[in-house]
């Protein structure tokens, strides 16, 4: 198996608090990996370090795109640069552009794939118009994949909760990532929506060949879809392994249930 992301001795300190403490982790190409742990364990902070929202205090994150030989260090880079290298994410507390339509949310994700500059915007030449038409169509296709196309012209803030979570995924997909980081994608969803989400994630992996790393509290979802699970508690990695291994691990049981 090819490793596409490697986290090496990563630490993040806020004030005196070690939110992440020497974490090591690696993601295999094409896998669905889960990151679990009690609330406040540092899972989202880890996502923020990977995607560049925070600069890690020490340690490094490096990626190796599928088909590439050399791995490159991405920790410390700006979020937009990291995104352009092929890492896209969703947010735990939904951060959609709520006053924009569903279509526009996805179009924003395709922003850096477009070339139209200011002159193009002012003159509205044929190239610019064609490009705009293409981005609208591409965005619609992405919405179709996530089964959101019936909401295409709705305002994002008017969507039902589950659809908003899926729109977050669609928006992340529109940046053409090879690695997708999902931060609690099933939070607040009903069982039916969760089932649908499970299908979507499986489809993204099998059809789009996207590797997935997700943070999730819904254990049945985690155990169903992921091949590999990492468990963090108090900023430390306390266990890793297949779902069955993790389930039996005494440290994990202790972390979740207390002593």
């Amino acid at each position: 198996m090819e490793k596409i992301m490697e986290i090496d001795n990563l630490s993040m300190v806020f004030g005196g608090l070690k939110a992440i403490d020497n974490v090591n982790m690696s993601i295999n190409s094409g896998a669905i990996t889960a990151l679990i742990g009690p609330n406040g364990a540092g899972k989202t902070t880890l996502f923020n370090c990977i995607t560049g929202v925070y600069k890690p205090t020490s340690g490094s994150v490096s990626i190796k795109k599928p088909g590439q030989k050399e791995s490159e260090k991405i920790s410390g880079l700006k979020p937009h640069i990291i995104n352009r290298k092929g890492l896209a994410r969703t947010f735990q507390n939904i951060r959609l552009f709520s006053n924009m339509s569903v279509l526009e949310n996805v179009m924003v994700g395709r922003h850096h794939k477009l070339k139209a500059n200011i002159m193009g915007a002012l003159l509205r030449d044929r190239k610019t118009r064609e490009e705009e038409e293409k981005v609208v169509n591409d965005s619609y296709e992405i919405l179709k994949k996530i089964n959101l196309h019936k909401f295409v012209n709705e305002m994002a803030r008017n969507l039902p909760y589950g659809a908003q979570r899926r729109l977050e995924i669609a928006r992340a997909l529109s940046t053409d990532p090879f690695l997708l980081l999902l931060d609690e994608p099933a939070a607040g969803m009903n069982p039916l929506e969760t089932r649908e989400l499970e299908d979507t994630i499986n489809r993204l992996r099998s059809e789009e060949k996207i590797t997935i790393l997700l943070i999730e509290h819904d254990m049945s979802l985690v155990m169903n879809i992921s091949e590999h699970i990492y468990v963090v508690d108090y900023g430390k990695m306390i266990a890793e392994g297949s779902p069955d291994e993790v389930k039996r691990n005494p440290d994990v049981i202790k972390a979740y249930l207390g002593e």
């Binding site: 937009h80 924003v108 850096h112």
Partner: peptide
């Protein structure tokens, strides 16, 4: 427009 609504989400979209 996206930037005015949410700078962090905007950055994370490249």
């Amino acid at each position: 427009e996206a930037m005015r609504e949410d700078e962090i989400a905007c950055q994370s979209m490249g």
